[in-house]
Design a protein around this nucleic acid. Sequence first.
DNA 1: CTAGTGTACTGGTCGGACCAGTAGGCTACG
DNA 2: CGTAGCCTACTGGTCCGACCAGTACACTAG
Lengths: 250, 250
Amino acid sequence: MGGPRFEPVRTVRAYERVVEQIEEAVESGALSPGARLPSERELMVQFSVSRSTVREALRVLQARGLVRSRPGDPHGAEVLPFSPAALHKSMTTLARVAELSLGELVQFRMVLDGSAVLLAARLRTEEQLAEMCEAVATMRAAVGRDAQAFGAADVAFHDAVARAGGNKLIQVCTDVVRSIVLKLIAERIAAAPDREELMRRSIRHHEEVIAAIRAGDGPLAAQLSRKAMYDYYAGYVDEGERSALRALLE
Amino acid sequence: MGGPRFEPVRTVRAYERVVEQIEEAVESGALSPGARLPSERELMVQFSVSRSTVREALRVLQARGLVRSRPGDPHGAEVLPFSPAALHKSMTTLARVAELSLGELVQFRMVLDGSAVLLAARLRTEEQLAEMCEAVATMRAAVGRDAQAFGAADVAFHDAVARAGGNKLIQVCTDVVRSIVLKLIAERIAAAPDREELMRRSIRHHEEVIAAIRAGDGPLAAQLSRKAMYDYYAGYVDEGERSALRALLE
DNA sequence: CTAGTGTACTGGTCGGACCAGTAGGCTACG
DNA sequence: CGTAGCCTACTGGTCCGACCAGTACACTAG
């Protein structure tokens, strides 16, 4: 022992090097959203690789949500602003492949939303509070008339709360998980028999949460928020999993 | 109004169709982890597209962590078991592009870990509790001797807790966010002057958490857990952000 | 039976080609 | 002079054919 430590040589593909360089440029800010990459034919000159290689690299970057290509665009691929699309995609895959149950997803939402509310009670501004109130007002106006508007206003409420909480990661994850949950049970929600009653109760819960946020009582707001989500979704969750959800209600 | 609703025609690329089909096969379980895809030349026959198109599709699938190709492998691309690698990648990108601060990441960990502990206090088995104890014992044995072993045991502890909590999503996110945080401050942790004291205090905190889990007191365990993480990481977080972290300690 | 060779595949990369589409300059008309 | 319409030069999407280095496996010679 004691000789030189040789590390296994990892053969690195050409397209990976291309990906790395462009990724680095984007993440470091050298390429801002809206900026254009050179054309594929130009890139293949700059990187000294073939167009196939350039294209494979662009496909990877596109899959990661960093750039977008449009056929015929004379300005080359566009650098995109960050969007949680890639995160959304990988979480959706996770949900399918790892067989996440609806219960786990709802539980995760309870955790995220509860935390966001807790933080919002501390950090919210008056404008953000007004936004929440407005969203609930929109919900109330939509009860029994426009289910889609009700859902949209509900999303707006939770989004305002998440923003008020000040944590971008919570915000994005809330957004992603919510859309997955809603997609899973969209048809069942639409078919719920006591749907209007559910909506009214949901509004009441939202108002209680707002009151607690206004009062600055974070723990209470968090508890109410988790309770509200439990009430709204428990009916769609298997009985066996419901007890795990209730563990978050103490 | 009333005429037929025409939807905008979305031109869909050939490689996207290939991606969709293979993705569907994998996520539906028709292709299990370990299974092999046909060779690229075979796929180009089955899909009636060129090899370039097949390869671009495979690059996308590879970026999503669903398959892996190895040059020279006579059996074709391999279907991978789910790994949070793709989720990890997109969260890391999120952290860089959306400029997530260390404070936000730590805050998210406090939320996730607190919830995992809360659930674990309810749902843990005796084996899992023993695992946690063992991890802490390993940590204690490593204090002042082997910082790497200390870190690994710490990870093992939190992993056991997350597993005991029973929510795979919390588990995966905990894992992903932890590795991002650790990567961000690895060198600063290694250089901490009062490092050994930090370790000892951390162990004490872990023991308190275990006691609360054993007693089945979820809320207490969650509070202790968040406090422990705050104590351990607060020093690396900007003063301005620390108050937001403290909002989770009430 | 084993060690070694050979071969028939694999994926990675290259170059060239064609097509449909777009943007923007150019022209001809009003 | 202004504008509507065409034209051209580019773009990305797809295909084809070729070559290389690597791997697994069968086959052969010892």
